[in-house]
Design a protein around this nucleic acid. Structure first.
Length: 577
RNA sequence: GGCCCCAUCGUCUAGGUCGGCCUAGGACACCGGGUUUUCAACCCGGCAACAGGGGUUCGAAUCCCCUUGGGGCUACCA
């Protein structure tokens, strides 16, 4: 049976690269009817944060990647946290085995000494391959070193008799000269195993059949393979080294891109209030300065807070970033799957079930792929289109909650109506943006300067608005002015009204609809303006028109010419009714 | 620097294992045009690639070598 695993180091949120690794492993397990294991590689005390594991777990679940074995699920070969496994002595057992068999040895070098060796090797245009001692130090030597306060580590003596050939499913045979692979540390001076060791032991104990990971691990593989054999673990797992995902700027897509983008943004802003910025990020000014100089990087929440404050959009890298930007989990899964894989026919937009059915390791791509955000948006547009309305409603509610939108006050019926009106939306953020004005208080409407200039001030937008206002007021007070005897200002009525005004004025509907749109929502982008009037109701509609009429010309310093306008509008009223 | 991986339209890729079916297919982006109350969406049309050089062969995108370019790794990180 196929057993795959995802083994993240919990250093922060799940990012795109990690999610793709997890997805490919998961898809292969599901495709073959095998098992998918989640293992947490928290052997580096300095880097792991206590909340990170939960974040990774949440993000995997949002994507719909469920594990058969691992934290919070089922632990037949547990525990699944390497820190806990270490405490149980699992790794030491194997380290001692190697030590006893003379396949590993103690080392007492300080990091300064190591650094010096490395420099020497570089001078000779070589990589550091640790010089193995003729006679391995024994327990007594180790005890002595410890008492002297020297660091004690254990290195694996990599067999030097023959080259190591890695059989890789995507790359075929990859040959490494044994002499290139130096003896590497398997047990750190703090007693913890290194990644290269813990990974081998756990893959064996957890019966992993397919090690699917990024190409950045290819160079670790010969060492791990040698270790596997030295430990007598038998049949090697299948290795699958996926191509790397690169970002638009070139280079591996990295979570460092967000702080980098923020740093650049801060530098471009003139007269920026650094004190205030530090305060927003809840860090001191030295920390901020150090960050701007590129020396240090604060935590993600600090980055996010500062970015929001200066109003800069950071590139999405973490899976939660995509949730916040209004992408569907199905979109992410589909898109991530196509980063280094394709089904071989011309299909691109695929459901998760279709992906599971079609996925095959033999179709992994060798070359690196670029994370193309434009294509992601196109995928999202398609997925929004094909997602059943009920399900989309659920996704929309999740989204509204995560961004804490005013649209949260809408009921399901209203949300469904909005979804229908937003057909063709590219993201859930589009839907929110086009409808949030419906749920804001009248005085919370923010008028967009460009929209005001272009739509209301440039032509006779204000005049049109007065025209509309007068009609709706008549409608409210005089039943005779209603079209087809309707009592409510419905979408149908509004449409008829606006069309009649456009016809009268001999202009396109746009010249009439746009001024009203700006008055009601503050900008030029919204759901259908006819529907907006109905959903808003006549009081709010009239109040907002009134507000626009009063506030905007004053704000723009424009002289109002009420008398002329009013008489003209009133004079025409009867006829128009 | 050393080691390793990769190389088809701007981007993701199909084709490469079985060399002729490829005057290289699809998608995104882009450029025209249409539809339209805004933004989208939608419809029609278009542009666009086998990195370069050597081989092997009747024949190469496909096999081999070199060059160039891109990427990864080079830790008591994972």
């Amino acid at each position: 049976m196929v057993v795959t695993r995802f083994a993240p180091s919990p250093t922060g949120y799940l990012h795109v690269g990690g999610a793709r690794t997890a997805l490919f492993s998961w898809l292969w397990a599901r495709h073959t009817g095998g098992k998918f294991v989640l293992r947490i590689e928290d052997t580096d005390l300095k880097r792991n944060t206590p909340t990170a594991m939960q974040q990774v777990i949440n993000d995997l679940r949002w994507l719909g990647i469920e594990w058969d074995e691992g934290p919070e699920v089922s632990e037949p070969n547990g525990p699944y946290l390497q820190s806990q496994r270490h405490q149980q002595g699992i790794y030491d057992k194997y380290v001692n085995q190697l030590l006893g068999e003379g396949k590993a040895y103690y080392c007492f070098d300080t990091s300064e000494e190591l650094e010096a060796m490395r420099e020497e090797a570089t001078d000779q245009k070589q990589n550091l391959t640790y010089r193995r001692p003729e006679i391995f130090p024994d327990e007594k030597d180790a005890a002595k070193a410890r008492s002297e306060g020297r660091p004690v580590t254990v290195r694996f003596a990599v067999p030097q008799d023959e080259d190591i050939i890695v059989q890789d499913i995507v790359r075929g045979e990859v040959k490494f000269a044994a002499s290139e692979i130096g003896d590497f540390i398997i047990k750190k001076s703090d007693g913890f195993p290194t990644y290269n060791f813990a990974c081998v032991v756990d893959d064996y104990l957890m019966k992993i059949t397919h090690v699917i990971r990024g190409q950045e691990h290819l160079n670790n593989t010969p060492g791990q393979q040698a270790l596997w054999q030295a430990l007598g673990f038998g049949q090697l797992p299948q290795y699958v080294h996926m191509s790397v995902t690169v970002s638009e700027g070139g280079g591996k897509l990295s979570k460092r891109e967000r702080p980098k983008a923020l740093r650049q943004a801060i530098k471009t802003i003139e007269n920026i209030d650094l004190e205030k910025l530090a305060q927003i990020g809840n860090i001191n000014s030295e920390e901020l300065e150090s960050f701007i100089k590129g020396k240090t990087t604060p935590d993600m929440p600090v980055i996010d807070a500062m970015a929001e404050y200066i109003g800069v959009e950071l590139p999405e890298i973490n899976i939660v970033d995509f949730l916040r930007s209004g992408y569907l989990p199905e979109t992410m899964v589909n898109f991530l799957a196509f980063l280094g894989w394709n089904p071989g026919d011309n299909r691109e937009i695929m459901s998760i079930d279709e992906l599971v059915r079609a996925f095959d390791l033999s179709r992994l791509t060798k070359s690196n792929s670029l994370f193309d955000r434009q294509k992601l948006i196109a995928f999202n547009t398609e997925h929004i289109k094909m997602t059943p309305r009920e399900k989309l409603l659920g996704h929309l509610k999740d989204y509204l909650k995560t961004i804490n939108s005013p649209v949260l006050s809408a009921d399901d019926e209203q949300l469904k109506r909005i979804i229908i009106l937003c057909e063709g939306a590219r993201t859930l953020a589009d839907i929110e943006r086009k409808s949030r004005f419906l749920f804001l208080e009248n005085d919370k409407i923010v008028y967009d300067d460009d929209a005001i200039k272009k739509v209301l001030l440039k032509g006779d937008g204000l005049d049109v608005l007065k025209n509309i206002q007068a009609k709706i007021e008549k409608f409210v007070t005089n039943p005779a002015c209603r079209i087809d005897g309707q009592e409510k200002v419905t979408a149908e009525y509004t449409e008829k009204l606006l069309r009649s005004i456009a016809e009268e004025r001999k202009v396109g509907l746009g010249k009439v609809a746009q001024p009203l749109r700006v008055a009601l929502c503050g900008g030029t982008i919204s759901i259908s303006i006819f529907e907006a009037v109905e959903m808003l109701g006549k009081e709010k509609t009239l109040a907002r028109i009134d507000n626009a009429l009063n506030v905007i010309p004053a704000k723009a310093g424009i002289q109002k010419n009420d008398d002329v306008m009013d008489s003209r509008v009133r004079g025409n009223d009867k006829k128009e009714c």
